[in-house]
């Protein structure tokens, strides 16, 4: 995946069943962000794989003061890429059926 400077990782073991999963996001390379990033640490949150949109969560992080508005796309893309990977892994581990 493209290196956005923002890293998103699972914050719990994925059992492949839960719709809502714990994620952890932090900035690895602040230079990739457009705005001035105030280093607050890692942000832990839950994400509903079925019903939520990465960009909406990114906007909530902006609204909460973690990032500036100009970086909402980078944060959203970082979350979306990780979510896509989680979904892809789940599909691979599901039996193709009969």
């Amino acid at each position: 995946a493209e290196d956005t400077g923002v890293r998103v990782e699972l914050n719990e073991e994925d059992d492949g069943k839960k719709a809502s999963i714990a994620l952890k996001l932090w900035v690895e390379d602040a230079k990739k962000l457009k705005g001035k990033y105030k280093d607050t640490g890692a942000i832990e949150f839950t994400f509903d794989l079925l019903n939520e949109v990465a960009e909406v969560v990114a906007q909530e992080m902006v609204d909460s003061g973690f990032f500036l508005e100009c970086d909402v796309k980078i944060v959203g893309k970082s979350i979306r890429d990780r979510v896509a990977l989680i979904k892809w892994r789940r599909e691979r581990t599901v039996s193709p059926g009969n």
């Binding site: 932090w26 640490g41 942000i43 832990e44 909530e60 992080m61 909460s64």
Partner: peptide, 27 residues
């Protein structure tokens, strides 16, 4: 512990914690 909670108006809970060791990468 060094954690803090931020609750967004939409109800989502963000918990701020120390960055994992893996952040240490070569620049």
């Amino acid at each position: 512990s060094a954690t803090a909670q931020v609750v967004h108006s939409a109800g989502r809970r963000f918990i701020v914690s120390p960055v994992p060791e893996s952040r240490l990468k070569d620049y």
